[in-house]
Amino acid sequence: MSRTPAERRPDTGPPTAVRRAGVVVALEGVVAVVIAIVLAVHGATGADESFISSYGTAGWFAILGSGVVAGGVALCTGRRWGRAIAVVAQILLIPVAFALLTDSGQPWLGAPLLVVVVIVLGLLFSPKSVRWLADDYAPDAEPPKD
Rank of each mutant, 00 (worst) to 15 (best):
M1N: 13
S2H: 07
R3S: 14
P5G: 03
A6Y: 10
A6L: 11
D11K: 04
T12R: 04
T12Q: 04
G13S: 01
P15D: 00
P15Q: 00
T16P: 01
V18H: 01
R19I: 03
R19E: 01
R20K: 09
A21V: 06
G22F: 06
V23G: 03
V23P: 01
V24I: 15
V25Q: 00
A26D: 04
E28P: 02
V30H: 05
V31N: 12
A32F: 08
A32N: 11
V33D: 03
V34E: 13
I35S: 12
V38I: 14
V38P: 05
L39P: 01
A40Y: 09
V41D: 13
H42A: 12
G43H: 01
G43I: 00
A44L: 14
A44C: 11
A44M: 06
G46E: 05
A47V: 11
D48G: 12
D48K: 10
E49S: 15
S50W: 07
I52E: 10
S53N: 13
G56H: 05
T57H: 11
A58D: 03
A58M: 05
F61V: 07
F61P: 05
A62G: 13
S66N: 12
S66Y: 07
G67E: 09
G67H: 09
G67N: 09
V68Q: 02
V69M: 08
V69D: 01
V69H: 10
A70S: 14
A70K: 05
G72Q: 10
V73C: 02
A74S: 10
A74Q: 08
L75K: 01
C76I: 13
W81M: 12
G82N: 08
G82I: 05
R83Q: 12
R83F: 09
R83V: 00
A86D: 01
V87T: 12
V88K: 02
Q90F: 00
Q90K: 07
P95C: 07
P95N: 06
F98S: 09
A99E: 11
A99R: 09
L100M: 15
T102M: 12
D103N: 11
D103K: 14
S104L: 15
G105S: 05
Q106H: 13
Q106K: 14
G110D: 00
G110I: 05
A111P: 03
A111F: 10
L114M: 09
L114F: 04
V116A: 12
V116M: 07
I119Y: 06
V120I: 13
V120A: 03
L121E: 00
F125G: 09
S126P: 03
S126C: 04
K128F: 00
K128W: 03
K128N: 11
S129V: 02
R131Q: 10
R131W: 04
L133R: 10
A134G: 08
A134H: 11
A134R: 14
D136T: 11
P139G: 06
P143G: 07
P144I: 11
K145A: 15
K145T: 14
D146L: 14
